[in-house]
Simulated scan of single mutants.
Amino acid sequence: MSSLKVRVDQQKLDRAAYVLKCVAHPVRISIIDLLEQRERLTVSELQAVLQIEQSLLSHHLTNMRDKGIVDTQREGKKMHYFLTDTTITNIIDCIKGCKTF
Rank of each mutant, 00 (worst) to 15 (best):
L46W: 04
L4V: 15
R74Q: 11
V70K: 00
V8G: 03
T42I: 00
A17N: 04
K5D: 12
H60E: 13
K5V: 12
D33A: 12
T89M: 05
L20A: 12
G97R: 08
R38N: 15
C94S: 11
D66I: 01
S58D: 13
K12M: 04
I31T: 04
C22Y: 04
L35S: 02
R28N: 04
K5I: 06
L4D: 12
I92K: 09
Q73V: 14
I31W: 06
D14V: 10
S30A: 13
V6P: 12
E75S: 09
L56R: 15
M1S: 15
C22G: 12
I95K: 02
D93Y: 02
T42W: 11
C94K: 09
H60F: 03
V70S: 01
H80C: 07
T87L: 12
L50S: 05
D9I: 06
A16P: 08
M64F: 13
K96C: 08
F101V: 10
F101I: 13
R38K: 14
M79T: 15
P26C: 05
I29G: 06
G68E: 05
H80Y: 15
E36I: 08
K96H: 09
S30D: 07
K78V: 00
I88E: 05
L20M: 15
V8F: 07
T87V: 09
H25K: 10
K12D: 11
